[in-house]
């Protein structure tokens, strides 16, 4: 892929990101941050690529650490965001559901 294509993708993604995220209300900024934490866990892909081609122990160690960091971000980030968002908005519905179950 040539550099210009990649820069095009970068610039378009930046505009899309600004448009979408500017609409997130202040109330949801903390979950937004932890969700973006999870999304930047996408560096895991970089870790997978470099460890696949590691030609020394040092590179393997570097890659392993990068994979662990990236996975913690992804798993921890999405789960904790879910935990937070569960407290917003869906509360009443959940109570109703459990009420139904009890009956």
């Amino acid at each position: 892929m040539d550099l210009i294509t990649m820069i095009t993708i970068f610039v378009l993604a930046a505009f899309v990101g600004f448009e979408v995220i500017a609409k997130v209300p202040t109330t949801l900024h903390t979950p937004l941050m932890s969700e973006t934490n999870a999304i930047h866990g996408i560096v895991l892909l970089g870790g997978l690529i470099v460890i696949g081609f590691a030609n020394s122990t040092l590179d393997e160690v570097i890659g392993l650490i990068a994979i662990i960091f990236g996975t913690v971000n992804i798993v921890g980030g999405f789960l904790v965001t879910d935990r937070m968002l569960e407290m917003f908005g869906t509360k009443k519905k959940k109570k109703a559901d459990s009420g139904d179950g009890a009956e």
């Binding site: 892929m1 993604a13 930046a14 899309v16 941050m33 973006t36 996408i42 892909l45």
Partner: peptide, 18 residues
């Protein structure tokens, strides 16, 4: 960009914008 990985470019840029 260095690894020519579009998912990484877009994911990273979204976080950067946020």
């Amino acid at each position: 960009i260095a690894l020519e990985n579009t998912a990484l470019i877009v994911g990273g840029t979204l976080v950067g914008s946020s």
